Computed example of a mutant assay.
Amino acid sequence: MAKKVLVAYGTTNGSTAEIAEAVAGVLREEGLTAEARAAGAVASAASYDAVVVGGGLYAGRWHRDARRFVRRHGKELAGRPLWLFSSGPLDASATERDIPPVPWVQKAVARLDARDHVTFGGCLREGAKGWVARMILRDGKGGDFRDFGRIEAWAAGIGRELKSG
């Protein structure tokens, strides 16, 4: 029976959801049962064999829904394989170097013994919600800085690890 993996995410404008969908897609290609779901819509993580949680970064903080998910389901998460990701830098920095997790996520990684955390580039497009997002776009600093090759390689590593043991 294939291991069941939850990829939960917190997003405001959909960019982190697209990353979560890509991760779940690769895990399915690896032979696992995987689904991407909005963190706020997950009632329990108990039925999953492993969990990946992603949150968009906003002003140096992980998305509220991702933080709440980790707090609400902490006991369930601590008992199974867990990976975390962040998305957000609106430049090429996430592709050029390893960006450590923001402090709250760093504490969650340690507390829950997460197997890995990675920061991916973010995406901010015209029509994004929020005053700050509109200001960033007005200043010409939006764009799509996600590296789906890197995202897919990271997800494939998770798949291999889950299949091997």
Rank of each mutant, 00 (worst) to 15 (best):
H63I: 15
G127H: 08
D91I: 13
E76Q: 11
R71N: 12
P89L: 10
G54L: 03
G121E: 01
E35G: 06
G149L: 12
R134L: 09
L90R: 03
G56V: 08
T95D: 08
W104Q: 11
P103Q: 06
T95E: 14
D65W: 14
G55W: 06
G142W: 14
L32P: 00
K3L: 15
L77M: 10
D113W: 13
V132T: 10
G121Q: 00
G122F: 10
A2D: 07
A114T: 05
A156L: 12
G157V: 10
A153G: 09
T33Y: 14
S15L: 04
G122R: 00
I19Y: 01
G143N: 05
P81G: 04
L112E: 07
P81Y: 14
V23Y: 08
A24M: 05
G25W: 11
G159P: 01
E76I: 08
A50V: 14
P100S: 01
A156T: 03
Y48A: 12
Y48R: 06
F145V: 10
D144C: 06
F120V: 09
A153W: 04
V109W: 10
C123K: 06
S86E: 15
V51K: 00
R80M: 14
L90D: 02
K75R: 14
F145C: 05
A155T: 06
L82Y: 09
R134F: 12
G157Q: 04
H117A: 11
T16V: 03
R97M: 13
L27I: 08
P103I: 13
T16C: 00
G130K: 03
R125N: 09
V51G: 01
R134W: 12
K129E: 15
V53W: 03
W154A: 03
K107F: 13
G122N: 04
L57V: 12
R125W: 13
D147K: 02
R28S: 11
Y48G: 13
G60T: 07
T16M: 02
Q106T: 14
A110Q: 07
R160Q: 11
W104I: 13
R160D: 09
F120W: 07
D98H: 13
T12I: 08
S47A: 15
G142D: 10
R61Q: 15
S47P: 06
D49Q: 09
I136S: 01
G142E: 07
G88P: 01
R134N: 12
R150A: 14
G157C: 08
V26N: 00
A155M: 04
T16K: 00
L90S: 01
A36S: 04
G55E: 08
G127W: 11
A2R: 12
A46Y: 04
G159K: 01
E30H: 03
E21G: 05
V105D: 02
A38S: 15
S86L: 15
A50M: 01
G60W: 12
D139Y: 11
G88T: 05
G157T: 09
D49R: 11
Y9Q: 03
G143Y: 15
G157K: 06
V7I: 14
A114N: 04
V42Q: 03
D65A: 15
I136R: 00
L162I: 13
K75V: 14
G74R: 07
W154E: 03
S87Y: 12
A92T: 12
A17F: 07
R80F: 11
K4G: 05
L124T: 09
